[in-house]
Simulated assay, not measured.
Amino acid sequence: MSGRDVLSVGLFLLVMVFQVTVVNRLPLPGAGAPDLVLLTVVGYALVRGSSAGAVAGFCAGLAGDVLPPAAHVLGQQALVLCLIGFLAGRVGESYPDAGLFTALACAAVGPLVAVAVGALLGDDRISQPMLTATLPQAALYNLLAVPPMVWVVTRVVRGPRRRGLQPVRHLARGRI
């Protein structure tokens, strides 16, 4: 396991604890809060690709399934984050310049996938008021949190870029 992988695991653990202890307790309007774990999986998948995104999503989701206050079927969040991680990684591999658009799309689609998986697994918390009030708020909070969260995650996963140390290509060839 490389140092970058250890840093990524630490990032996931930090985000999960921060989500449960701080973000979920914020007195935000409505009943929603941004899903920082989902956005961390998206940022990780954009850098590392679809396979790594699916594995990271599954592991983060499984940890989220057992982390209190889990009120859903074991494996539900693992499946959702695995699907979103794979999707974000696949789109990131196919269209590397569409990172922000991909992150925004995944942030909006994530709560919908969670509701669909919950409905398939027979989650009794899915109701008409939840679909009309809570779901749009969750998607909105995710969309607002995308730019800072995905920027931080991609910088941590990718690592620092070394500027000024690499030769400029057109100057190295003798052109100005």
Rank of each mutant, 00 (worst) to 15 (best):
S2R: 04
S2W: 08
S2M: 03
R4P: 15
D5F: 02
V6K: 06
L7T: 05
S8K: 07
S8L: 06
S8M: 03
G10D: 02
G10T: 00
G10C: 03
G10R: 00
L11T: 03
F12T: 04
F12D: 04
L13N: 13
L13E: 10
V20W: 01
V22Q: 11
N24Q: 12
N24C: 10
R25G: 06
R25S: 14
L26Y: 07
A31D: 05
A31P: 15
G32Q: 07
L36I: 01
V37Q: 08
L38S: 14
L39G: 03
L39E: 07
L39N: 13
L39Y: 01
V41E: 04
V41C: 10
A45F: 00
L46V: 01
L46Y: 11
R48G: 03
A56E: 05
A56Y: 05
G57M: 04
F58N: 11
F58T: 05
F58Q: 05
A60P: 15
G61C: 09
D65I: 04
V66D: 08
L67S: 12
A71M: 09
V73T: 15
Q77K: 09
Q77M: 13
V80A: 14
V80G: 12
C82A: 15
L83E: 05
F86N: 08
L87N: 03
L87A: 12
G89N: 07
G92H: 05
E93F: 02
S94W: 09
Y95H: 14
D97M: 12
A98N: 07
G99F: 04
L100M: 14
L104H: 06
L104Q: 08
L104G: 12
A105M: 11
C106G: 15
A108M: 09
P111G: 02
V113T: 06
V113Q: 03
A116W: 10
A119F: 12
L120M: 14
G122M: 08
R125I: 01
R125H: 10
I126G: 05
S127Q: 06
M130S: 09
L131F: 08
T134G: 07
P136K: 00
A138E: 06
L140R: 06
L144K: 08
M149Q: 11
V150E: 09
V150D: 09
V152L: 15
R155W: 04
R155L: 05
R158G: 15
P160M: 00
R161M: 14
R161Q: 13
R162N: 11
L165E: 11
L165W: 07
P167L: 09
P167Q: 02
R169M: 12
H170V: 10
L171Y: 14
L171H: 15
A172M: 08
G174I: 00
